[in-house]
């Protein structure tokens, strides 16, 4: 069964409309009628013969084409090779992919306020993700405040404010060039004073190689922790699904700097299916918590490993929603 918001947020299960779940899978597959993923296409084209080395090599290449990476592709192929029999290659592979991820993710919101820090390189969709997440959290009955910690990019504050309004969330603004740690501090102060359930803090996109900017981020985290011990309760790394092998490096360095607790995989509505999260989850043990599958408010979803596996390798979509 596809993971729902209630499970992710640790709420008593409010039944989610079947339709929204069904729609999700279709979206996740990304207009499949028109554009099957290159990876799915290749896998579908493989005439699978376990005794033929060529087949295994084709399979490995297909996985590499999905940005899974040379190492993780090798691991997947090995795992498949250990299976006694394979009825359907796509289904078997999807299962192995799902198996590389840990247990279903949870967002830790059992604090008042729960603080979520959002980080990532430039252009991955941090601000948009925050807008959608805030909207989802207010819909779940929580009061939310968002803090505009991106004080570098032109008009980042304005962009977040628009999203906050749409989501019905409280907003703490900032001035351009202001110390982002001070903005984070103000946001938490305001969150506590106004009795909000969740405080989400945006940060400027930064390349993980820029030492001074990573130092700045470490400071933001430190200031948050000092103001509210135990916070941030979630530090989410936003990762673009089109990212290649550099994503692993991003995850590694951001984790070292600010102890990332989960990944948000965005822009899954294209043909890229974000295979890079496989080595991220497998090598670094970093859970994927949310996925972005489109531009509207509802297009942020809890990550479901089985769905992801099927979408990536193009398993049969007919049964999975029926299996709910």
């Amino acid at each position: 069964m596809t993971l729902g918001w209630a499970e992710l947020l640790g709420d008593a299960a409010a039944p989610e409309p079947e339709e929204s779940r069904r729609g999700l899978f279709r979206r996740l597959r990304g207009g499949l009628s028109r554009s099957r993923t290159a990876l799915a296409e290749r896998i579908a084209a493989i005439r699978f013969d376990p005794d033929d080395d060529e087949t295994w090599q084709e399979l490995e290449e297909a996985l590499i084409l999905g940005d899974v990476g040379v190492q993780a592709a090798g691991e997947l192929v090995q795992r498949l090779g250990r299976r006694r029999s394979i009825d359907d290659l796509g289904t078997a592979l999807a299962e192995e992919v799902a198996g590389l991820f840990g247990p279903p993710p949870r967002l830790d919101l059992a604090h008042k306020p729960a603080v979520i820090l959002v980080v990532g390189v430039n252009g991955t969709g941090k601000t948009t993700t925050i807008g959608k997440l805030a909207s989802r959290l207010t819909a779940s009955g929580r009061s939310v405040l968002v803090g505009a910690g991106d004080t570098f990019r032109a008009a980042a504050e304005e962009q977040l404010e628009v999203w906050a309004k749409r989501a019905g969330a409280d907003f703490v603004g900032s001035n351009k060039g202001q110390d982002p740690a001070a903005v984070a501090f103000d946001a938490i102060e305001a969150g506590i004073a106004r009795g909000h359930d969740v405080v989400i803090i945006d940060t400027a996109g930064r390349l993980h190689t820029q030492t001074n900017l990573m130092e700045e981020l470490i400071k933001v985290r430190r200031v948050i922790e000092r103001r509210l011990p135990g916070a941030p309760h979630e530090t989410l790394l936003v990762l673009d699904a089109t990212t290649g092998q550099n994503g692993l490096q991003q995850a590694k360095i951001f984790s070292q700097a600010v102890q990332v607790t989960g990944v948000v995989l965005t822009k899954l509505d294209g043909t890229a299916k974000g295979g890079i999260v496989i080595p991220i989850a497998y090598d670094l043990g970093l859970p994927v918590k949310l996925i972005g599958v489109g531009e509207t408010l509802d297009d942020l979803r809890p990550f479901d490993a089985a769905d992801f596996g099927r979408a990536l390798v193009g398993g049969d979509p007919g049964e999975d929603t029926a299996a709910d």
């Binding site: 290159a38 590499i64 390189v121 820029q210 089109t242 290649g244 550099n246 890229a272």
Partner: peptide, 29 residues
């Protein structure tokens, strides 16, 4: 930082709007 997808993206834009060249961004990473 784009992965294998770069080719798919470039081919699609090429087919539909026929671009003349590329600006490669975030090369400082």
């Amino acid at each position: 930082m784009t992965g294998q997808e770069a080719v798919t993206v470039a081919e699609a834009f090429q087919q539909q709007v026929a671009f003349d060249g590329v600006i490669l961004t975030k090369l400082d990473g």
